[in-house]
Each structure stands twice: as C-alpha cells, then as structure tokens.
Design a protein around this nucleic acid. Structure first.
Lengths: 141, 141
DNA sequence: CTTGACCTTAAAGTTGGCTTAAAGGTTATC
DNA sequence: GATAACCTTTAAGCCAACTTTAAGGTCAAG
C-alpha cells in the first residue's frame, strides 16, 4: 500500500501539517504508522478524510460535531445517530437564520429611513434603533 | 448630581462589574470620577450607555464596531459615518444569511432523504452530502 | 474591633481552532 | 560532509470578550 508523508498529505489536502497533527491530537485523524525515523506515513485515503473535515467545517460543523460523525463512520454506526446530529445542527442553523433575519430587517429598514445627513445628536435612526427597546424586537438570545 | 458605584451600575445594567472595568479599559465606557478611596462613581446615564452596548451586542455588533458608534455619538459626529458602519454590518449579516441558507437547504433536503435506518457504510446521505463536492454548492467563505 | 461585603489592580485562564516558535533529529542533494 | 528541506515534540501565542484568581484596601453593621 502506498503511503505519503505529512507534508505530501498537507499538499494534497490543503490542510497545514500542524493542523493535521492537531486533528490527530483531537482524535479527528487516526494516529498513522511511523517510519523507523518516527516519521508519519499516511494511507492515501487520509486525503479524503481530511477533505471531509474541511467540507464539514465549511458547512459550519464544529470539530466536536465532526468528530461525532467520524466516529459513527469509523464504527459503521447507526445511521439514526448521524441523522440526529444533523437534525440538531439544522435546528441551530435555523435559529441563527431567524436571529440574523430579524437583525437584517430592522437594520435595512433603519438604513432606508436614514438620510445620512446631519449630526448624531437627537435622533440618529441607527443609534435609536439599537438603543431603543431592542429586547422587544429581539427576545431570543 | 447623583452617582452610583460600580456594583450598583452592574446591578442596574445587568453587566458584571469586571465586564464594566473591561469596557473602560477598551474605551467603550469613559473613566468615571473616583472617590477619595479610589472607588469609581458613575453618573446615572452610564446605565443607558451600558444598555446601548448590550443591545448592540445582541444585534451582532462587535465591541470594535460598538466603539466606533459610541465615538461618533460622543463626538456628535457625522451621521453619514454611522450609516456607513451600519451598511457594512448589514452587508456582513446578509452574507451570513446567504451562507446559512445554503447550508440549511442542503441539510434539510438531505434529512428528508435520510430514513435514519441501516448502517453508515456505503451511502449514508448525510455523510455523502458533506463529503461530496461541497465546494461546488458552497463557493464563498 | 472584627466580620463580611464591597472596592482596587494586575495577571492568568477560558473557548475553538488553530499558528508560531523553539530546539532538535533525518534525509536528499551538491 | 555540509547545507537545506524535511520531520519530530512541546509550549506558547493568537482572536474576542470576557471570567477567575490573587492579593490586597475600604466601609457599614453589630
């Protein structure tokens, strides 16, 4: 079986060598074989595993969540658990979208009102929108 | 003029004393008067300023951005600058919403497909959605 | 006059996800 | 055989926005 060095793996995956060692410490990457000189040698499919990590990060999964998913894969575990993790993530994402959408709505409305003229004192709509009973519009979080 | 201690201010604003000292160090709160024993004494409207900070944080503004807004208010500065700060923030918020919406779309579609039955190996839709060319669907960020 | 609740400062710790540095061992090339 | 480009480990640093700890000084109550 062909193996590659950590530098080659870094090159192929686009993940820095030190980050790869960090993932090993954090149990996202399994500890690979070593040469006589104690150098890491990775199987080629380590590239796919790293890319899975990179992609999951782009999707907004944390390393903790990614580790959970990887453990399920490694253990050939129950798909229902993977579904649960994804459902929790989906819920969190929807909450974030809700929150941001409310902020977006008020902020864009405020910016339409705001001519951007005159001094700040007495009635800059932006400042007032923030200062004014923000908790009525924004109760969660 | 009536003044209050840092503990009273913390009580009234819901912001911990140490956080208030931190805001002072970070130039979000002005350094208040001191008693002979070197205790801080705040004017009552310090409560409103702290609440402005709290609200702005709830809106997703960072302390750096809040400092900018406060400086404008303190200097009675140009409203156009406040508008620019808010516009930049709005842009960032819209980018975040876009990103999250794409993730939400794929993840919810995936979860509908996924029965949650069977083992992980060969074709768990969740794992495949993450592993599969995630960068084609998700180019930004 | 002592207990305890408050206040002071500076410094270190927290979280997440790394990066950078320090101090060294190995391997490939000239 | 020397130089450079790898590799190794551990430890420290970074970001934001604090919190916690340490080691004190002050003040009101009993």
């Amino acid at each position: 079986m062909q193996t590659i060095s950590i530098g080659e793996l870094a090159e192929l995956s686009g993940v820095a060598s030190q980050a790869i060692r960090y993932y090993e410490k954090e149990k996202l990457m399994p500890a690979p074989q070593r040469t006589d000189a104690n150098y890491r040698r990775y199987p080629v499919d380590a590239v796919a595993r790293l890319q899975f990590i990179v992609h999951a990060k782009q999707w907004g999964f944390t390393l903790d969540e990614i580790r959970e998913l990887l453990i399920l894969q490694d253990a050939n575990g129950d798909r229902a658990q993977a579904k649960r993790i994804a459902e929790e993530k989906l819920h969190k994402i929807r909450e974030q979208i809700k929150h941001l959408s409310r902020v977006e709505a008020v902020l864009s409305r405020t910016l339409i009102e705001c001519t951007g003229e005159g001094p700040m004192q007495e009635g800059c709509p932006i400042v007032e929108a923030i200062a004014d009973k923000a908790d009525e519009r924004e109760r969660n979080h």
